[in-house]
Amino acid sequence: MIFSESYHRFIDELKKNTGQDPNQCYQCAKCSAGCPVVAAMDLLPHQVIRYLQLGLLGELEESRTPWICASCFTCAARCPRDLDLARLMEGVRLAVLRLREGNRLSPADLELTPEQLEKLPAQALVSSFRKYAK
């Protein structure tokens, strides 16, 4: 639902995760104009931001664009509103993953002994928490 309470929760979460506020965008589309992988995208980068502004996460879930973004930062370097689009795209990927997969993982679910935990690469833990944990 557009502009509902869950919309504001979603935007706040996105801001927290990415440090970027999609409502800062005024849709000049300079990101889309300079994006090197735009040909493979179904939604253009500026459209992704517009969808975020409207809270249309369901549509974004269907889109290939966030997964095609290569985080080359061309858009971020040129954005006149000083938005870091690559970070926003990562935020979208995160949101979509959570939407799809739910919060599957908590540290207790791992059922590991402290010794086993110590042996696990920290990065693996962090990234799986980022993707699956609340």
């Binding site: 849709q27 000049c28 589309a29 889309s32 104009a33 300079g34 253009l44 500026h46 061309t74």
Partner: peptide, 21 residues
């Protein structure tokens, strides 16, 4: 309505790559 991402020299001309938003 949109922006230009880059202007490249292409032969004698200039290639303007932009988007119509």
């Amino acid at each position: 309505r949109g922006s230009v991402g880059k202007v490249f020299p292409e032969g004698e001309r200039l290639l303007v790559r932009g988007v119509d938003s």
